[in-house]
Design a protein around this nucleic acid. Structure first.
Lengths: 409, 409
DNA sequence: CTGTTAGCGCCTTCAG
DNA sequence: CTGAAGGCGCTAACAG
């Protein structure tokens, strides 16, 4: 175990306290305070619905307007308008006065279908998923559908969450998880989703996982190949590769691309120089800390990779890994970019803000989210059989963004 | 307008294309591919619910089990179990066989209340909001409630989104927006929320906005003061301050703290050295680009702040602004940490990964989200009047995290 | 303990 | 064009 933030001190501004402590510090410490209230506090005594409790219902509005509940429904929610103008006016006024809002649940029950989609991610606070989620939510709200979000940090959770989401009967469910689970969980997941689909739901993955459902995908292998080529063109020969879980398809594809391009240039990757892990910052950090620490595998000398020559570059198959790796390098006294080149994959927003700025391949995160909601909301029949039309490709050829973390050498 | 990524080139790995182009490139280019399907594609023909279409309903299960629909309901969903074991068994088997999942909407309608909360943020892809959201979603799912999320990038959107969310009749709504809107929108928002509350909903803000609703808040002013003090203790005298929108309470509080501490040490902030903006990376970047560019306000000389002496530090009242500012400094040939000290506010995960690592005050993002969920789900009566118990404070005294971006000088 | 009977709030034929 | 009536899937008294 390598501890992090080695160089970080925490102080308490008021006292000489013991510092930052556990993240959970102070949580739950709920206490009142005596600030005088704002002038605006109680000044708006405007009629609030039915004054007392429950929100106004359709029949309230109907009664108030002196029409039937059916007409009220037609003007308020019905699509095609076929109501006399005076009635229509009355209804709208009544609705306004009562502050009527349709009850979405009742509508869903009556119509037998909601206007909600579900999104499952493994970690919202990861910039990759945050970007995708942003795309999903914005695209959905443009189309007037709401999105429920759930996070599943591990493979077991995933199945639970999916079950929970299915219960809310969304129009569709979008799964953007990074890691693959063990085979039995995978099998159960597939069955659950198939049942969901056979009951009219639509499912789409973001990044293909090899399951028989549509998936929004990107050119992973081509991207990897581009990175590999860039590496050799820029004069690097001895890369360390940081990949994700082996069961994770996208990681495998990127890896294949990198290794392939390298091989074409006659470069064989030292098996000791490839680290398996997960697509998260911590793993990138710890992998490099370990290599740098234990025997100095990175820098030339006894026990170093590539027969003692050491590494000249780090190829992370994911941006946050690359970023974690960079700070690990620094902790080990190695200057990223100067001593060792670094590349990422994804082009998350903060890739420009690390130093040196990260060379990486661009992934249209927001668009990926958008494409997923389009797929889920479309009425196209999906082809259940296996040929064609299962993958939705964004970007045919990847763009690699050259920054300073991989200078020519 | 200052353009960004000035040093960034984009290449196309295959052709000598014109680079990265617009972000929207390639979007919508949906095309099939001919990959052979996986073996797993059609092998699982397991009974899927009622085989054909609609999912099984409660009465389906009841019939299948040979019991009344009420008993079925009791065993499947009812809390307290009071059903004979043999019947209970039959029901569960039937449910299993039919793959029954309760229809959450119908339940919500019947019970007159859902088990869903709504979350409104201004930008999920901002690490601050991502952290908060993560806390909200996890806490909610632990309690078995789902969360619907919406994003409102600006003040007008906010009102729309709130209306949309109210329509879904959530148990509560959590608002974590960073900017204040104009007065009329603010007034409408307040009224909308008051109606929602009077119909039984609970609302809570994350970071107080001065509206008459509960808010999860942190020690903004104390945090600001801590930063101010740290500044003078570390030998800085001429800070540039990057604040948020003036209407934004938390920003104002932090600002007051910083300026107050500075004043105590006899330091007056040059008015030209404070930039108003918004709490986002871009604003931090452009503010510094502008200062560094136009006449070189930052470095000693004609037209520089502090009577020509220039700035020795940048105090951003938000981490992402600080991060944007750091890369802007670099673009201007100024080395952050060495030439000019930098501080942030928030301690987002990637604050450790910029270089030099960011000195900042820690905010318990995840816990803030969790506290909001607890508030919204609790049954405490809220005090509508203005004295006491409106603010929920996490952390009484802020922790400032010392890293390398503000070395002693 | 179990089944019967009303609704929940809304939509949607179906007559007028 | 409008109103009455039945139904969506489920829960909640209420009798047995």
């Amino acid at each position: 175990m390598v501890t992090e933030r080695m160089t970080t001190r925490a102080i308490d501004p008021e006292a000489g306290g013991d510092g930052r402590g556990d993240d959970r510090d102070g949580f739950g410490t709920v206490f009142g305070n005596g600030r005088g209230g704002d002038a605006s506090d109680r000044q708006s005594g405007r009629a609030a619905g039915r004054g007392n409790g429950a929100p106004a219902t359709l029949s309230d509005v109907a009664r108030e307007a002196g029409v039937s509940i059916a007409t009220a429904s037609r003007v308020l929610n019905g699509g095609t308008r076929k109501v006399r103008d005076d009635l229509r006016g009355k209804v709208m006024q009544a609705a306004e006065r009562l502050n009527y809002h349709a009850n979405a649940y009742a509508q869903a029950v009556a119509k037998g279908g909601s206007s909600n989609i579900a999104l499952l991610v493994s970690d919202i606070s990861d910039p990759y998923f945050a970007g995708v989620s942003q795309g999903v939510v914005k695209a959905a709200s443009q189309r007037g559908v709401t999105v429920s979000i759930a996070v599943a940090s591990n493979g077991e959770d995933e199945l639970d969450r999916v079950r929970g989401l299915v219960a809310t009967r969304p129009r569709g469910i979008i799964i953007s998880e990074s890691e693959n689970v063990n085979d039995s969980a995978r099998q159960e997941l597939q069955e659950e989703l198939e049942r969901y689909r056979s009951s009219g739901g639509r499912v789409v993955f973001i990044l293909d996982r090899g399951l028989p459902f549509p998936a929004v995908d990107v050119a992973n292998e081509a991207g990897g190949r581009a990175i590999g080529r860039l590496l050799v063109e820029s004069g690097y020969r001895r890369p360390v590769i940081l990949k994700g879980n082996d069961g994770y398809r996208s990681s495998a594809q990127r890896y294949r691309g990198v290794v392939g391009a390298l091989a074409e240039a006659g470069i064989m990757v030292d098996p000791r120089a490839v680290a398996n892990g997960q697509f998260n910052r911590t793993k990138g950090f710890s992998a490099i800390m370990q290599m740098a620490g234990a025997g100095g595998m990175l820098t030339p000398g006894e026990g170093a990779v590539y027969g003692g020559a050491g590494a000249d570059s780090i190829v992370a198959l994911n941006d946050v890994m690359a970023i974690g790796a960079m700070t690990a390098l620094r902790n080990a006294g190695i200057v990223p970019g100067r001593d060792i080149g670094v590349t990422g994959f994804g082009d998350i927003p903060y890739a420009v803000d690390v130093h040196p700025a990260l060379t990486t391949v661009h992934l249209p995160l927001t668009d990926m989210g958008r494409a997923a909601v389009e797929s889920v909301l479309s009425d196209d029949e999906y082809v259940a059989d296996d040929s064609g039309r299962r993958l939705i490709f964004l970007q045919g050829r990847p763009d690699v963004i050259l920054r300073d973390s991989l200078p020519r050498r």
